[in-house]
Amino acid sequence: MNLARIRERIAFTILGLSTLFVILPIFAIVFYIVKNAIGAISWNFILDIPRHGMREGGIYPAIVGTICLVLGTILFSLPLGIMSAIYLVEYANDNFFTKLVKVSIVNLSGIPSIVYGLFGMALFVIFLKLGTSILSGCLTLSIMSLPLIITATKEALEAVPFSFREISLSLGATKWQTIRYCVLPYALPGILTGTVLSLSRAAGETAPILFTVAAFYLPRLPRSIFDQVMALPYHLYVISTQIPNMPLRLSFATAFVLIVLVFLMNLVNVILRIQFRKKKQW
């Protein structure tokens, strides 16, 4: 018995240390970037265009570009994602078609981001002749974000009690009225958190935008959805691999801004979730 206790101590220590091994690098990476970036961060860096072959100036166009891409992505993926989730939860029968939809969602979630990039280029840029443009990039990113949005929406819809639907239907509401007034409002917070999460992923993605939208160097703001844009993740890739004699502090500062952007979105997510829990009445 004593031996077993000692074994247990050792095993639990190892498990705890493993967890520490996972957590430490996160701290290390964030701390490392913040420490090296802090001197280079200024309003000028955030609001200026890149100058002198990107070795000076700021990253304003890349920030704007990433925000454009995120907003464009939400525009396509949110309606489609919500509708497919509604289909799966409220309308689908247990048939072959439904199974196919489910398998497709799983499959979409597993496709490598670079394959999305290839597909986006082949379909949107070349076949549909949209060119390397914000439109092509957003479409590509939105297909990629669909699985996350659908899964989150599905969970949110399933969490709404069956009785709400029963009440509404028993009063003579149609199926859609029931969904619209008695299900969606209560699923909304869950849908929102899923959406923000998937957008924070989309904001950090590089591979899908490589051939569909990202501009190597374009020191101005986009004028239409058919323009190319710079994007933060791609810009970080470019300045850290393609530009010789790049001042490192600018690379660090760019990484810092990208992380802050993504973390901010995650923070919004956490706040939404807490608010939701507070307000939940059933």
């Binding site: 009785s163 709400f164 029963e166 009440i167 028993s170 003579g172 008695c182 009445q281």
Partner: peptide
């Protein structure tokens, strides 16, 4: 039909 024939459920079920 459901408008004409209403129902009261076993447990009071109000919307939040």
């Amino acid at each position: 039909l459901r408008k004409k024939i209403g129902i009261i459920f076993a447990l009071p079920q109000v919307l939040p």
